[in-house]
């Protein structure tokens, strides 16, 4: 898929673990893992909003379009 999820990069920049992010965003570890590994087919706007608020970043910092 040409959309790459850079969640792990942002988490590393903010020095935040998956457990901590999952607690602060309010979604399960399993779902967060699906998102991080790029297996997710869709992301709800409210989830994106919560992640951006916790990581203090823009949606473009997490999602990136890479042409195949």
């Amino acid at each position: 898929m040409p959309i790459v999820v850079n969640l792990d990069v942002m988490m590393a920049r903010r020095k935040m673990s998956l457990t901590e992010l999952s607690e602060k965003v309010g979604i399960t570890m399993a779902n967060l893992s699906i998102l991080k590994t790029g297996k997710a087919k869709a992301v709800r706007l409210e989830t994106l909003e919560a992640i951006c608020r916790v990581l203090n970043c823009q949606p473009g910092d997490i999602l990136e379009f890479v042409e195949e």
Binding site: N31, L32, A40, K41, A42, V43
Partner: peptide
């Protein structure tokens, strides 16, 4: 179903 399950 898969789309629903993989929507975060």
């Amino acid at each position: 179903q898969e789309e629903h399950d993989l929507t975060i």
